[in-house]
Computed example of a mutant assay.
Amino acid sequence: MRPPQPEWLIQHGLNRSNIDAVHTGDCWAAPKSGRCRPATREQALDALRGQVPASSVPCVPERAAGVIGDGG
């Protein structure tokens, strides 16, 4: 059996010390190469607050985390 899908993913750079982006756990554009690690909601929020860019595709992690409104 596969482990449950994480709610959040932190995408690391090639050297693993840089954080490149934050994704929701179901983001289809999150790299499958092992550069993403599961993260807690608090870790994702900390990264977004620290100016780590959110995923540039429709997963919109800052909206899911409640950092920005839903526009409606």
Rank of each mutant, 00 (worst) to 15 (best):
R41N: 09
P53F: 01
P31L: 05
A39T: 04
C27H: 00
A21I: 03
L9V: 00
P4M: 01
L9A: 03
S55W: 07
S56V: 07
R37M: 14
L48G: 01
V67W: 10
V60T: 14
Q11Y: 06
P6N: 04
L14Y: 13
Q43S: 11
P3G: 13
E42C: 05
S33A: 06
R35W: 05
P38M: 12
C59K: 01
Q51T: 13
A65P: 04
R16W: 08
Q5L: 11
I19S: 12
T24K: 08
M1L: 08
M1T: 06
P31H: 04
G66H: 01
P31W: 03
A54V: 09
E62L: 14
P58Q: 15
V52G: 03
A39P: 00
R35E: 03
N18S: 04
T40K: 03
L14E: 14
G69V: 03
I19F: 11
C27V: 00
C36Q: 04
K32E: 14
L45P: 04
N18W: 11
Q11V: 11
I10Q: 10
S17A: 04
C36A: 12
L14W: 08
Q43G: 10
Q5T: 09
A21N: 04
T24P: 06
S56P: 13
S33Q: 06
H23G: 01
L14F: 09
P4Q: 01
Q11K: 03
E7G: 03
I68L: 11
P6M: 00
P38N: 15
A30S: 08
A39G: 07
G71L: 15
A65L: 07
D70L: 10
T24S: 12
E42Y: 05
C27G: 02
